[in-house]
Design a protein around this nucleic acid. Structure first.
Length: 276
DNA sequence: CCTTTGTCCTGACTGC
DNA sequence: TGCAGTCAGGACAAAG
């Protein structure tokens, strides 16, 4: 399940493709979350990627005629192959380059997306105009994402803090895993009504969100080759989690059994003693 | 049957 | 009262 650090690591893994010429596009199965635009078979031929950017969990692969917008959904994974090889069961989409490299998308659950933003949909500054990108909150690692700012945003939010920090309109890139992990590190009970958090606790939470993502990015960077390579393993980098998926196991701080609950039909993991 | 994720939708409700 | 914002729940994609 690619969260923001995995997406960023994937973006870094694409950088070797800058400047290579696209020679062929293969759509084996267009039925992702939305259909892969069939015109990509022609549109991308002869193009070069000029930049790979990221906004939230979207990768924006920029080329001369527009931007290829990629989302990995829940099970999506990009591989960069040095040579073409046989496609496996869930390999839905390929971009081949004239030097033999192949960029391949595998996505068993097909919740991912490949969309096209035409040059005509770009703003004057080159940023993309797209409904999926319009209503997104700030990037969690931006300096603009501060405790004071979060505190001001939570004034009217009575929902549990866990579900609120996962709201992409408020801040992007905090998925289910890192929401639980960040709240543990900040010692905040995930059920706390968001508006009840003091400024000091908001500052602590923002710091821990940033630190949690930073740690994961560091782990991803060091395993970039394995993560992005063609061998199919080890998938998303395994991190040491404090609480996520550790129901019944001992809290690494106090030894209390980790509790799991459902919030908005999502699993939340926390320590009833450390998190208040 | 259950689980997993991000995103969107609806209908109800809240607060200004 | 009107309106915008928010909330809870559900739907949806597919597969193990």
């Amino acid at each position: 399940m690619p969260e923001l650090p995995e997406v960023e690591t994937t973006r870094l893994g694409l950088l070797p493709l800058l400047g290579k010429t696209i020679s062929q596009v293969i759509i084996r199965n267009p039925t992702l979350r939305w259909p892969i635009p069939p015109h990509l078979l022609q549109t991308l031929i002869g193009q070069k990627f000029t930049a790979f950017k990221r906004r939230a969990k979207y990768i924006l692969a920029q080329c001369e005629s527009g931007i290829l917008l990629l989302h990995l959904g829940m099970s999506g994974r990009l591989s960069l192959l040095e040579h073409d090889g046989p496609a496996a069961k869930h390999d839905h989409f390929d971009i081949h380059f004239s030097d033999g490299h192949v960029l391949r998308l595998r996505d068993p659950r097909r919740f991912g997306a490949i969309l096209w933003i035409d040059r005509s949909q770009l703003n004057a500054d080159g940023t993309a105009q797209h409904p999926l990108l319009d209503a997104l909150g700030p990037e969690p690692l931006d300096d603009a994402f501060t405790g004071a700012w979060l505190h001001s945003q939570l004034r009217k939010r009575s929902a549990p803090i866990k579900t609120v920090i996962m709201d992409s309109h408020l801040v992007v890139g905090v998925g289910n895993i890192y929401a639980s992990e960040s709240l543990f590190r900040a010692r905040i009970n995930p059920q706390t009504p968001a508006q009840k958090l003091s400024l000091a606790r908001c500052e602590r939470l923002v710091n821990e969100i940033k630190a949690t993502l930073h740690d994961a990015l560091k782990a991803g960077g060091s395993s970039l080759r394995d993560f992005f390579g063609a061998d199919g393993n080890p998938g998303y980098f395994q991190q040491e989690y404090f609480v996520y998926g550790r129901t019944g196991q001992a809290c690494k701080i106090c030894g209390t059994a980790i509790t799991s609950i459902k919030q908005g039909q999502r699993s939340t993991f926390y320590c009833v003693k450390c998190q208040r």
